[in-house]
Amino acid sequence: MDAPATERKPLDSAEMGVIAHLYRGEVYRSTIWRTRLDTTTNWSVVTLGVALSITYSSPQASPLPLVLVGILIIFFLMLEARRYRYFNVWRARCRWIELHFIAPILKDGDLHLDDHWQDRLADDYLHPRYHVSMWTAVGRRIRRNYFWILLIQSFAYLGKLMVHPVPVTSFGELVGRAAIGPIPGWAVLGLGGVYCLSWGLISVWSGRADTARARKRRDPLGMG
């Protein structure tokens, strides 16, 4: 009697060699994209450092550079989140191969093809897609790196308003110093609060979504 069509024959030595080369290629791609993540983070740190140097160069220096650098930080954050979505694809494939191919070989020599883990990997190659949404990626990058960058930016801006050119003596004076041209200080501080709060909410929502996704997984590791 013929074997069922869904049954996968054992992998021969040539096929196992192909998977080994495939794993090495995916590791290389994940390494390259991981380096690109570090690059955008470095850009954010450098631009924030330049803004801090300009703003605190003298008591009379304007705090405006710390406001404008927020635009660049947002740009770098979105760019890094996009790169993270690519990196996450290669990372998930590497981990999937490690879990279902390399680990079983080392442990008992049985690849457990009857579990059809290879079908999921094949489907990921046949129909490539991102494993996480853009906002999930943004939240993860904020929790990993950008929380501290945004925190330093916010405290440095408020510190500048409070100490230069002389220490503030009232909240009204602080609001007055925050004014930018025709834009009143209360509007600038309000936008700053929304700026910080929005990224914080995205970070919290992303963290809870990741936790909920992990609880629903039927396997010990899901792609993404």
Rank of each mutant, 00 (worst) to 15 (best):
S30H: 13
T55P: 05
R215P: 02
R85T: 00
N145M: 01
S133R: 05
V67R: 13
D114Q: 08
E26C: 08
W199I: 07
V45R: 01
L221E: 03
I73S: 04
F75M: 12
C94I: 00
L72P: 04
S154P: 03
A122Y: 01
G224E: 06
L48V: 02
T41D: 06
I102C: 00
T31F: 13
G172K: 01
M1N: 14
V188C: 08
L151P: 02
D115V: 06
L113S: 04
I73L: 09
G200P: 13
K160C: 13
I19E: 04
I152Y: 00
R208A: 10
T169M: 06
R208H: 12
L174D: 09
W148F: 15
P63S: 05
I71M: 06
Q118Y: 05
A3F: 10
T35C: 10
C196P: 07
G159L: 12
L66P: 00
P10Y: 15
E15C: 09
Q153F: 03
T169R: 13
I180D: 04
G207F: 06
H131Q: 14
F75K: 09
W43C: 06
I71R: 08
P65C: 03
I54M: 08
R217I: 05
L161G: 03
S133W: 03
W96L: 00
A178D: 07
G193D: 11
D219K: 02
V69D: 01
G159E: 09
D38N: 14
G192K: 07
H21I: 11
F101W: 08
I97C: 01
M162I: 12
E80H: 00
R177T: 10
A20Q: 12
S13M: 13
A122E: 15
P182I: 07
W148K: 05
V132L: 02
L111G: 03
A179L: 04
K216G: 12
I97K: 06
A178K: 02
G181Q: 01
V163R: 05
I19S: 08
D114M: 01
